[in-house]
Write a protein that binds this DNA or RNA. Sequence first.
DNA 1: AAACTTGCCAACCGCTCCACT
DNA 2: TAGTGGAGCGGTTGGCAAGTT
Length: 335
Amino acid sequence: MVRPLYCDKLGMRKGSWNEEDDAQMLAFVTKQPTGNWQVGAPRKPGLRRCGKSCRIRKTNVLRNDHVRHESFTPQEEELIIKLHSAIGSRWPIIAQQLPGRTDNDVKNYWNTKLKKKLSAMGIDPVTHRPFSQMLADYGNISGLTRTQTRIGSLNQNNNNKININNNNNTFFVSNQEIQQIPETFFPNFNNSVKTEPPEAIKTDSLDLLTQLQAITHVKDPSTNPDLSLTQFHVSLASSSSSSSSTCSGTLNETTPQQSFNWRDFLIENSQDVNGNVNDEGFEAMGGIEVVKDDTPLMSCVKESGEEGSFVEAMLDGENDMLLDFPGLLGEPVYY
DNA sequence: AAACTTGCCAACCGCTCCACT
DNA sequence: TAGTGGAGCGGTTGGCAAGTT
């Protein structure tokens, strides 16, 4: 079935609106009791805009409460990031929390500024997780198919280690950077973007109640301490001369587990099927340290040895992926 | 001063959902 | 119950203005 192009029927006009268009639209086009937009060439020849175009114009630009055209405030930025972290790109819901802003406003601001800002901070704007952890995730995913050979490879060839924590390395994620950049951008940020939303609201199919809970929490974390997004920091170990290759330290057992997904991640990914500690992921990261209120709760550093560059590690990772999926090496397939 | 780049934002496109028949 | 069409949404595009070279 071939769908008609957007407003491409009956000679409908497209493109920018002028004041005359707005005046005609507001004068002759209203939302009918049925909910439909009664507009179009047969009803108002002078205007020649389709109903959908009118609806978008009215909801995005001519809304009665759409009066704010000044820049987003740091508080608004923070709220958008937190809500996006909690409920994803549900712009209408996010915009409801920002009086005077439309979903299009928020979406545009996110796409043009906030995504770049988060990326510059070393945070993936889609998952709100540090790129460094995503690298570790990749290492774990890649290792699922042939963990033993991967570990062996890593142990035999130190160049395969991703060297993130070396102070001489230019890779953007360092202990200093990841701790300081959020405060540089958002003085009141309290590091929430370093953590994941609680499991209770981290789901692909959030119902309305859950979304409201997420919004309520994000706007006022004190109302629900059990759902805190901001209790922990996860920082990269800064020492490149550490000699331990096993995880050590003490986890605060009084902390609600629900509030700390990083810990779940670290624990889950440090054990093999038999429950034994497997520090491969941490080695790949170059070491991880979990800190709360400047108190180390858990640290994990890698063995000393020859350091490789981040680019080399990425290339080695690509080689690993090609070994896992040999089909990628073949000739292109045309259908 | 002209060409080029960048950022902003309104508008468009295509999809899913849902109400209605 | 299936078909139809409008509403709503997320992602993307394109035009314009400001800034830079």
